[in-house]
Each structure stands twice: as structure tokens, then as C-alpha cells.
Design a protein around this nucleic acid. Structure first.
Length: 269
DNA sequence: TAAGTATGTTAAG
DNA sequence: TTAACCTACTTAC
């Protein structure tokens, strides 16, 4: 379930459950076993999220870098940890808390230099206070790639994924296939501001809700909608369904290997 | 039992 | 542009 908001929530949760405490670290599945033994019994001192990258800090120079990929999940609990079930790559246990990481694309122990390298390759993360949207704009304003492609490129903007991309483009009325260099500065500023507020909200509520109050099914006099990804959205995974605003059909096509959703009538700018 | 699906990234061609 | 790779769960046969 991983776009950037999930990763920021995980950083807070790992810190809340284990920060400043001695933790038992293991890898029941085995693939992280050698590295786990090197931080086993140490104190988890800090956690950081940069886009979709999660870092768990042990001492000044040892970091567990986690990237959930498309399947990765973390379960947390209190009290005695359950017997291992399935492929648990990273298990962390303190005296009264435990966590289990399954299915990450990456889980590795790295030094602060490698961590800095990873972070330096990322674009600004709208969820971070130190984000500089100007860096993203410098890339976008020169690029022939579509804005839809650019929004998913972690070197341009870090943390947005397929849902935030589809939803912010809808909310700004922007045709996803427009080239980055054809966007105006005002359009970019509005998009960044909107993306930031959508992502901030998602960190707080733990799901992606993007539908404005005036467009909810209730406000539009329509039956409430149950979405299996858990949030209220305008276009994501709503191919061929009615647009909440104009009631025309939502479009879908594949773009760079990912499904792109948009409303051709509302997104004409 | 097999196939299909998923909010992602990387490497090979 | 395509395939490979992480894992669990749902649906079809």
C-alpha cells in the first residue's frame, strides 16, 4: 500500500514503537539475516522518510534502508510477537512491541554515505519541510515528457505515486499527456500546493481522500461509493465509471507500464 | 491448482 | 519498451 504518505507514517510508527529502545532484529525469511545480526540488540535511534524511502537509524553510520515496492507491508503489534507466518524479511521486537516487514523491494543495511547518495538522487518530497519545489520545476519546465510521467519520476518529485498523480492532475484540470515544458509556472505552483495538501492529509488520516466536499456522492445526490483501496477519489481505478463532476466516462490507458486514469472532459487544460 | 491483481523500481535489449 | 522481482490474497477452473 505504498505511496509516500504510507512511508512517512511508517517512519513515525517505527519511532513511536521502538525509538530509543533496544530491539531484537531478525529475518525469519532469511534474506536479511546477515545484516539483521549486525544491528540485533542495538538501540533504534532515529527514523527518516524521504519520498518512498524509509531509513531506520542505528548509531551514526548504520541505516536499514527499506523500500516497500509494490507489495511491501509492515504489521505492528503490542505484547508477545506472534509465531512467524509467511515470508517475514525483517522482524523487530522490543519488550512490549513488535513489527513484521513482508515483501519489500529493498531491505538492506547501509552507511550514511550510501544513504546520502540515495537521498541526493530524489526530487523534493512534498511531505518534507525541507522540500524545494523549485528543483522539480527546473526539471519539469525543460522536459518533453508528459506531466503524467514526470509526476511518477522519483528523481523529479519524491513520494507521489499512481494515485496522487491521477488525482492532482484531475483536481487541477490538467491533461495528463501535456509536456512538462508546456506547463505554466502558475499551473506548477498550484499543482505543488495541492499535492502537498493532499499528501499531508493522507499522512494524517491514513488513506488517500481527494474528493472535495461539494463533489462527494452525497453532495451530488448519488449513492455512496465503496472503494476497495480505501479512499474517496475522482479518477483512480474508476475507468468507464461516471466522472463525479461532469458525469462523463473516466478514461484509462497504459503509460510507461502503469495504468493512467483521467477524465478527458474535465482535464482539458 | 492456476491465474490475476496491486499505491513500484531496476536492468536488459 | 519489456521483463523481472518482492508477497499475499481473491477468483476461476
Amino acid at each position: 500500500m505504498p505511496e509516500g504518505h504510507v512511508v512517512h507514517r511508517l517512519a513515525a510508527r517505527y519511532l513511536g514503537s521502538f525509538g530509543g529502545r533496544t530491539v531484537a532484529v531478525s529475518s525469519p525469511q532469511g534474506r536479511f539475516a546477515d545484516s539483521a545480526s549486525r544491528v540485533d540488540g542495538r538501540v533504534l535511534e532515529s527514523t527518516e522518510a524521504h519520498g518512498k524511502q524509509l531509513f531506520l537509524g542505528f548509531g551514526a553510520d548504520e541505516w536499514v534502508r527499506i523500500h516497500l515496492g509494490i507489495y511491501g507491508k509492515v504489521a505492528f503489534g503490542r505484547g508477545e510477537p506472534p509465531a512467524p507466518v509467511g515470508a517475514i524479511r525483517l522482524r523487530m521486537v522490543a519488550d512490549d512491541a513488535w513489527s513484521e516487514l513482508r515483501g519489500p523491494a529493498a531491505c538492506e543495511l547501509i552507511g550514511s554515505g550510501e544513504k546520502a547518495d540515495v537521498v541526493s538522487r530524489l526530487g523534493p518530497d512534498p511531505l518534507r519541510a525541507d522540500a524545494d519545489p523549485e528543483r522539480a520545476w527546473e526539471r519539469i519546465r525543460r522536459s518533453r515528457s508528459s506531466i503524467a510521467t514526470l509526476l511518477m519520476d522519483q528523481h523529479v518529485i519524491a513520494g507521489a505515486g499512481n494515485i496522487f498523480r491521477a488525482e492532482v492532475l484531475f483536481r487541477r484540470g490538467i491533461d495528463p499527456l501535456r509536456a512538462g515544458r508546456d506547463l505554466t509556472r502558475a499551473e506548477w505552483d498550484a499543482m505543488w500546493t495541492d499535492l502537498k495538501s493532499l499528501m499531508d492529509n493522507s499522512v494524517h488520516v491514513g488513506r488517500i481522500d481527494t474528493v472535495r466536499p461539494e463533489h462527494t456522492p452525497e453532495a451530488m445526490g448519488r449513492p455512496p461509493r465503496v472503494d476497495d483501496h480505501g479512499g474517496e477519489v475522482y479518477v483512480y481505478r474508476r475507468a468507464a465509471q461516471d466522472c463525479h463532476v461532469c458525469r462523463g466516462p473516466i478514461s484509462m490507458r497504459e503509460l510507461a507500464g502503469r495504468n493512467l486514469f483521467w477524465c478527458p472532459s474535465c482535464q482539458n487544460r
